[in-house]
């Protein structure tokens, strides 16, 4: 396993990093920081590569056609990664809309477009609630009450869920459950796969010394 990851990392670091961040997003119940530099850098590269592909003239030469098709397919795959990364984050925002609305500190993890998206979507959904249901209730019950925990519907993220972590670098000793009275530590070496609580694993995801599987 270690060998295959290392090899891919050498081929194209940014694409591989985006893939890691995509899997990280998909495998955790949390919103991770938006990788603006990575996304805009790859989007620009895709645009540049697209212009190169378009410059390749139509030809009967089989080798040229093959090269052009391969380049286009590679572009499509990278574009898919970009779109899927953005889509995964939007799906999380949609699922945790009311939770995010309460916890504005999380907004620092979103891009400016995502923040705007969150605001607009919250407005759309609350308007829908009002049109369909809340407008028929007595004045005092029309608000979406956030204090009692009953309303609104929406999931909370679970920081203590277990995740599979692949160590891309040497991590060393890690306390597996800081909240527990019994201290237990494990030593994580480069290339190892371990199952840890997300709250413990998160810091290694952020500094890219590990990623989720």
């Amino acid at each position: 396993m270690e060998e295959s990851y290392e090899t891919k990392e050498d081929i194209n670091d940014d694409v591989w990093r985006l893939r890691k961040w995509l899997v990280n997003e998909k495998c955790c119940n949390d919103i991770l920081p938006y990788q603006e530099e990575l996304v805009t850098g790859l989007a620009d590269l895709c645009q540049f590569q697209q212009s190169l592909v378009e410059q390749m003239t139509e030809s009967d030469d089989f080798a040229l056609v093959l090269v052009k098709n391969l380049k286009e397919l590679e572009l499509e795959r990278i574009r898919y990664l970009l779109k899927e990364y953005l889509r995964t984050r939007l799906r999380k925002i949609e699922s945790w809309l009311f939770y995010l609305w309460r916890d504005k500190e999380k907004w620092s993890l979103l891009s400016s477009s995502e923040t705007e998206y969150t605001k607009q979507l919250h407005q759309l959904i609350t308007s829908h609630f009002e049109r369909s249901f809340l407008s028929g209730l007595p004045e005092k019950l029309r608000t979406i009450d956030e204090r009692d925990g009953d309303n609104p519907p929406g999931n909370l993220d679970d920081m203590d869920e277990f995740v599979f972590l692949y160590a891309a670098k040497e991590i060393g000793n890690v306390t597996t459950d800081p909240s527990s009275q019994v201290t237990s530590t494990i030593h994580i070496r480069k290339g190892e796969v371990v199952c840890l609580r997300y709250s413990v694993a998160k810091q290694y995801l952020l500094d890219e010394s590990a990623f989720l599987l």
């Binding site: 286009e72 779109k83 939007l90 477009s113 705007e116």
Partner: peptide, 23 residues
Amino acid sequence: LVATYSDNVQIDVSSSLYPPQAL
């Protein structure tokens, strides 16, 4: 809203829903 977001990031997030297998 999704269209506006796609315009802002200049990536159409409503297309390519599945990984491309072939051209």
